[in-house]
Simulated scan of single mutants.
Amino acid sequence: MAGLLANDTEQIDRRTSRSICDAVGERLQQSLQPEPRLPTHLEYLLNELKKRDLDSH
């Protein structure tokens, strides 16, 4: 089967290639959006835990 795929070399035009790249790029941006920040109070508590952990070593 790999031999069949290797011999099947259909070319796509520049416009189709650009459309595919744009669509993949959009999907990646949606998938890789930064995670929302924690509420301020939780962020403070996590920082306190890290600080105490460092102080205990």
Rank of each mutant, 00 (worst) to 15 (best):
16 T>E: 14
12 I>R: 07
29 Q>L: 11
53 D>A: 14
41 H>I: 05
25 G>D: 05
12 I>A: 04
17 S>C: 09
12 I>Y: 03
8 D>T: 12
47 N>K: 05
25 G>L: 08
7 N>V: 12
43 E>L: 06
1 M>N: 11
28 L>S: 03
57 H>W: 03
47 N>L: 08
27 R>M: 10
19 S>M: 13
18 R>H: 05
10 E>V: 12
11 Q>H: 03
49 L>M: 04
44 Y>P: 00
13 D>T: 08
36 P>K: 05
46 L>N: 03
49 L>Y: 01
53 D>F: 14
38 L>V: 00
53 D>V: 11
37 R>S: 11
31 S>R: 14
21 C>G: 10
25 G>E: 04
55 D>F: 02
10 E>Y: 08
45 L>V: 03
35 E>G: 08
38 L>N: 00
40 T>M: 05
24 V>H: 05
14 R>Q: 15
3 G>C: 06
17 S>L: 09
38 L>W: 00
37 R>W: 06
25 G>Q: 06
30 Q>K: 13
4 L>C: 14
33 Q>G: 13
8 D>Y: 08
41 H>A: 10
28 L>K: 05
27 R>G: 04
42 L>E: 02
41 H>G: 07
33 Q>A: 13
18 R>D: 06
47 N>Y: 02
24 V>C: 13
31 S>W: 13
41 H>K: 12
18 R>L: 06
42 L>M: 07
8 D>N: 11
3 G>L: 11
22 D>K: 09
36 P>I: 01
38 L>Y: 00
43 E>S: 12
